[in-house]
Simulated assay, not measured.
Amino acid sequence: MVGEPQDDCLFCKIAAGQIPADVVRETETTLAFRDISPQAPTHVLVIPKVHHRDAASLAAAEPAIAAELLREAGQVAGEEKLESYRIVFNTGSGAGQTVFHAHAHVMGGRGMQWPPG
Score class of each variant (00 low, 15 high):
Gln97Arg: 08
Gly108Cys: 10
Asn90Ser: 09
Arg110Pro: 00
Met107Tyr: 05
His103Gln: 09
Leu82Tyr: 06
Asn90Cys: 07
Met107Lys: 08
Ala102Asn: 06
Gly92Arg: 05
Gln113Cys: 05
Phe89Val: 02
Ala102Ser: 10
Thr91Trp: 00
Gly94Lys: 13
His105Lys: 10
Leu82Trp: 06
Glu83Ala: 14
Asn90Tyr: 01
Met112Cys: 12
Phe100Val: 01
Tyr85Met: 03
Arg86Cys: 00
His105Leu: 04
Ala102Arg: 04
Glu79Asp: 13
His103Trp: 08
Glu80Ser: 14
Glu83Phe: 05
Ala104Lys: 00
His103Met: 11
Gly92Tyr: 02
Met107Thr: 05
Ala95Ile: 05
Gln113Ser: 15
Gly111Met: 09
Met107His: 06
Ser93Asn: 08
Val106Pro: 03
Gln97Asn: 01
His101Met: 08
Ile87Val: 15
Val106Arg: 03
Ser84Pro: 00
Thr98Ala: 15
His101Asp: 07
Ala102Tyr: 07
Gly94Phe: 07
Ser84Trp: 12
Thr91Glu: 15
Ala104Met: 12
Gly108Thr: 10
His103Ser: 00
Ala104Arg: 01
Val106Thr: 03
Ala104Ile: 04
Met107Glu: 10
Gly94Ser: 13
Tyr85Val: 06
Arg86Leu: 08
His105Glu: 02
Phe89Cys: 12
Gln113Val: 15
Gly111Ser: 14
Ala102Trp: 03
Phe89Asp: 06
Gly92Asp: 03
Gly94His: 11
His105Ile: 03
Phe100Glu: 06
Thr98Asp: 11
Val106Tyr: 04
Gly92Asn: 04
Phe100Cys: 00
Arg110Gly: 01
Gly94Asn: 15
Ser84Leu: 10
Val99Ala: 01
Arg86Pro: 06
Asn90Gly: 07
Met112Phe: 13
Phe100Ala: 02
Ile87Trp: 11
His101Leu: 08
Gly108Val: 09
Gly94Asp: 13
Ala95Phe: 07
Glu80Gln: 15
Glu79Ala: 14
Gly96Val: 08
Gln113Trp: 07
Gln113His: 12
Glu79Met: 07
His105Phe: 03
Gly108Tyr: 02
Leu82Ile: 08
Glu79Phe: 02
Ala104Glu: 11
Val106Glu: 04
Ala104Thr: 05
Val88Glu: 12
Tyr85Leu: 04
Glu79Arg: 12
Gly96Arg: 05
Ala104His: 05
Ile87Thr: 11
Ser93Leu: 03
Gly109Met: 07
Gly111Asp: 14
Val106Asp: 08
Leu82Asn: 09
Asn90Asp: 14
Ser93Tyr: 10
Lys81Asp: 11
Thr91Val: 14
Leu82Arg: 02
Met112Ala: 13
Arg86Tyr: 00
Met112His: 14
Gly109Pro: 01
Met112Gln: 14
Val106Lys: 01
Gln97Thr: 04
Thr98Glu: 13
Gly94Thr: 10
Gly111Asn: 13
Gln113Leu: 10
Phe100Leu: 02
Gly94Ile: 04
Thr91Ala: 13
Ala95Asp: 05
Arg110Ile: 00
Val88Asp: 12
Gly109Gln: 09
Gly94Met: 09
Gly108Lys: 07
Gln113Asp: 13
Phe89Ser: 10
Met107Ala: 11
Ser93Val: 14
Leu82Val: 06
His101Ser: 09
Val88His: 06
Arg110Tyr: 07
His105Val: 02
Ile87Ala: 11
Arg110Glu: 14
His105Cys: 05
Glu80His: 01
Arg86Gly: 10
Thr91Arg: 12
Gln97Tyr: 02
His105Trp: 07
Glu80Thr: 07
Ala95Gln: 08
Gly109Glu: 09
Glu79Leu: 12
Phe89Ala: 14
Met107Arg: 10
